[in-house]
Design a protein around this nucleic acid. Structure first.
Lengths: 124, 124
DNA sequence: GGCCTGTATCGACGTTCATTGATGCAACCT
DNA sequence: AGGTTGCATCAATGAACGTCGATACAGGCC
């Protein structure tokens, strides 16, 4: 229940220097675009927000997410799957319920990617 | 040639506290999602990268952008329009050529939105 | 076992999006 | 003025996406 995620906003090997550091090549752009595309939907953005506002280590049960939207349960499940495939969240089933959380550091790395003109520095 | 942009990642009134601060409401999510959706395409992401890597105040001529992609000229123009409508870039015609640049601060505000659990602070 | 609840997957449908060729408009050149 | 180049807009087409009902799967409970 938690494979097939991207490793774009990669832990250490942070994919690339940053949006403003140097022009992205096609592969980098394609991988990164998947992440932004996942965030490019109002429903998914609210989901992320609901999950992320639980803080580090925080979780949200699907049963809390579902009633927050005027959408069918399969649609909710679909959006959660996309966020997971984008490498933004992960989940675990515990008994009857499934809990989702934000993968640690992802948002910070994404933010760093957007900011980062810190090209000059300890690269050596 | 430079109206109809969003004001989502708004200058001062920064739209909202941040993704992780509190769950977004529908309107906030809808506005923000447009920005992420604009970045959610490999072509547009590379465009942004090419423009942003020119640095603050830097510009890129469309005539430089176009040959960098294996796409028709109308398609390039279309993507640039979307980025502009998302409030990420702006442009100006100077003589024969049109130059695009990243709107100052947008990327930083977007990054801050993604990071920001710094809810407490000088809001007054 | 059988039933009920919570969640994921499947298939279908309508809408949105990326892409293109054709065309229009603006600025330069002679 | 007429021709040429750079870029935007338009209209059409095929692919991708969001949504749903139906269904399948997993776990708890009786």
């Amino acid at each position: 229940m938690s494979k097939q995620e991207l490793e774009v906003i990669g832990q250490d090997t942070a994919c690339c220097a940053g949006l403003s550091a140097a022009p992205l090549n096609e592969d980098q752009a394609a991988e990164l675009a998947k992440v932004f595309k996942a965030l490019g939907d109002p429903v998914r953005l609210r989901m992320m927000s609901m999950i992320a506002s639980r803080g580090e280590g925080g979780e949200v049960c699907v049963c809390e997410l579902t009633p927050a939207f005027k959408l069918s349960q399969p649609t909710i499940s679909h959006h959660l799957k996309l966020l997971r495939q984008a490498g933004l969240i992960d989940c675990e089933r515990r008994g009857t319920w499934v809990y989702y959380w934000v993968l640690p550091g992802v948002l910070d790395r994404l933010a760093a990617f957007l900011t980062a003109p810190q090209t000059a520095g300890a690269t050596a």
